[in-house]
Nucleic acid binder design. Structure first.
Lengths: 159, 159
DNA sequence: AACCTAATTAGCAAGTCGTGCGAATAAGAA
DNA sequence: TTCTTATTCGCACGACTTGCTAATTAGGTT
């Protein structure tokens, strides 16, 4: 995603208006590597601009996605997450706490799908599932050896 | 996923009852490579067993997933899809029609995530996005050069 | 500085997907 | 056949997202 200043210019040049709500969201998203949901962004935005609408957050995120400034991430059944990182990267998910981390992955160019000659492939996405060190520790402590729930389930529960 | 007969035995050995609803769903899912949603399975099931409940379809799919007989696939924002294929495989998605195809992928073992030493990786998922030959043709015909909507959006529209 | 107009916002209703709950039903053992 | 308990069904509800529209506002015009 471009800087808030660059986005302001991009918006103007497209005949879009530069509202305080949009500017706030530009700032909240720029360089944000937390892969927030619309709801969590709304919470942050509300702290700085009481009265801002969740509807506007969704709307602005969709705009930015249309403009190619950010991408949707759909992992697990929970809410859609938003990623302003446009570099060639992939994701690591902790199946315990649901956190998503950006990662650069070596070897993606060598991936060869077999038997799909009738497809024109445009993009490849890689998702690693694992357990982060924090969750690894709490697992050891609480002796939770059993399977954890999926990130989606986990996310729901944690609300 | 095991055969309906094997599943029957597995269910009994776990103290689960073998109802007609479950047996029907075993048959509908066994060898099914369409990655159906709960709703689409419900439609098929209803044709053969009018009165079967959508609730039961969800319940049975969740059971089978708990038993490790099938996996959830969450690609795009639409409904969860179910995959009875337990082989080591990945997926190709047509961004136009939303169809999902199973594929074996060479080179996954060589994938190296960079900078996530604090994660214990357990699984890797690869998703290829592209356009299937059928959609490629209809694109050429209707001169639709613009970007297609995401599979999720597309799926919603197609309903 | 006041004005105009189209874009935007807010907020509620509604849609989709999935689950909780409880009464009625049925599988499978005795 | 009877009994116990798992299962089914169907509705209500919850989470997430979008549609709709009246009121507001950004930004160009006079």
């Amino acid at each position: 995603m471009q800087t808030p200043t660059e986005l302001a210019a991009a918006y103007r040049s497209q005949g879009r208006k530069l509202t305080p709500q949009r500017q706030l969201l530009f700032h909240l998203m720029h360089g944000n590597d937390k892969h927030p949901t619309a709801e969590s962004l709304f919470a942050e935005a509300s702290a700085q601009m009481p009265g801002i609408s969740l509807r506007t957050v969704y709307q602005t995120l969709n705009e930015l996605a249309e403009m190619g400034e950010l991408q949707f991430i759909d992992i697990g059944g929970g809410a859609t997450r938003f990623d302003p990182n446009l570099d060639d990267h992939h994701h690591v998910v902790c199946v315990d706490c649901g956190q998503i981390r950006d990662v650069h992955v070596n070897g993606t160019a060598a991936l060869k799908p077999v038997g799909i000659e009738d497809f024109t492939i445009n993009e490849v996405g890689v998702v690693f599932q694992g357990v982060c060190s924090t969750c690894e520790k709490s697992r050891a402590k609480s002796n939770k050896t059993a399977h954890a729930k999926s990130p989606a389930q986990q996310a729901k529960v944690s609300k």
